[in-house]
Simulated scan of single mutants.
Amino acid sequence: MSQPLTPPKMKSMKAQGSPIAMVTAYDYPSARLAEEAGVDVLLVGDSLGNVVLGYETTVPVTLEDMIYHTRAVVRGAPRTMIVTDMPFATYRGSKEQTLRNAARLMQEGGAHAVKLEGGAELGDEIALLVSAGIPVIGHLGLTPQSVLQIGGYKVQGRDEAEAARLLADAKALEQAGAVAVVLELVVEPAAAAVSRALSIPTIGIGAGRGCDGQVLVYHDLIRYGSGIRDKRFVKPYADVGETIRSAVSQYVSEVKNGRFPEESHAFQTQAQPQEKPTTKLYGGDPK
């Protein structure tokens, strides 16, 4: 891909039945590797609070955090569409505040689009952003910024009322101008129904096979970290954490035992070249 994906192209991919592959990224090397691997979209998720910054929830993540990490991702993946989460309390306050904060993510961070968690109640804010030229992706189902309010990480859409509310919210987001909707931890039938009802793509994470694309957290996908918890909706494709742990452990052992560094890792002084005698052109022997 020579140019970043655009919202119209995403919509076209849905119409053509071409799945969208999204993954999170939080820094330059992960973004660069993901772009080289061919991902369609990179999400600078506020999940960086959990997997990079060590917070229990995403709530402590600030706008400055998101701008900082978005800049790094943009540098690592210049040919990939970059979507950045608007973190907790940077929207829903006033439309002016929402526009100002979203604009900072675009202007200072370099994001191509922003993502907001919430349903129909965000319609006016989304419409304002869209009218200002800011592409918006919605986020329904489990909304991590509200996890303290909803009482934990629970699967959504299990009963008819929840499923109907999801569908209504998704339609409201599309009506407001959202270019896509992330569905997180939603039962497969409800997610599939939402996907069929929308003309914009749905991106699932723990939402089954009926979505128009999928997203996984980078650290879950490759098991990068310590104490990575297995999740039913995640398929790990590598165990980078164990590889790193083993490599560092071997390094520590070799330093302690004097096996590193070896001669091949050291620099030596070079012998000074001997001064050559000079020959006089006229008279006498060389001195």
Rank of each mutant, 00 (worst) to 15 (best):
S131Y: 06
L281S: 13
P8K: 10
S12V: 04
Q268W: 12
Q156C: 11
D212N: 14
G208R: 02
C211Q: 02
T98Q: 08
Q145M: 09
R92Q: 15
V23N: 11
I203M: 02
L105F: 11
N101Q: 13
G123W: 05
V130K: 13
L116M: 15
A113S: 13
L99H: 09
V59C: 06
I203K: 01
V182H: 00
A191V: 00
T202P: 03
A15P: 07
A113I: 11
Q3E: 14
T70W: 05
G110H: 08
V187Y: 00
Y237F: 14
V73C: 10
H69T: 07
L198F: 02
S2F: 11
R245G: 07
V179L: 00
G138V: 03
D85I: 10
R158W: 02
S195H: 01
P7E: 07
S18V: 14
T84M: 05
Q272R: 15
Q145V: 10
P87K: 06
P4H: 07
A25T: 05
G227H: 09
K231D: 04
L173S: 01
F267T: 11
S249R: 15
G45Y: 04
E262L: 12
L105W: 06
A193F: 00
V74D: 01
V182D: 00
P273D: 04
M22S: 07
T58F: 05
I137R: 01
R232Y: 11
Y68G: 02
L42P: 02
S264R: 15
Y224Q: 13
Q156Y: 11
M106R: 13
M13T: 04
V240R: 06
A207S: 14
G118R: 09
S246W: 08
I228K: 05
Y218M: 15
K154H: 12
P135M: 05
L99W: 08
R232M: 12
K171V: 01
V147H: 04
P29G: 10
D220A: 09
G225I: 08
P286I: 00
F260E: 05
L221N: 05
L105P: 04
T202M: 03
Q175H: 14
A111G: 10
E275F: 08
P60C: 05
A271Y: 09
E174M: 06
T98K: 08
V181E: 00
P87G: 06
Y251C: 08
A238C: 10
A168L: 00
R223S: 12
D85L: 10
D65A: 08
S30D: 09
K11M: 14
L183P: 00
G204H: 03
K276V: 14
P135C: 06
P19S: 09
G54S: 05
K287N: 13
G152W: 06
L166M: 03
Y26G: 07
L142T: 03
M10T: 07
R100I: 08
R79W: 05
T98F: 08
R229M: 12
A15C: 09
P273A: 07
G151R: 05
E263G: 10
G204E: 03
G110R: 08
A132G: 07
A180V: 03
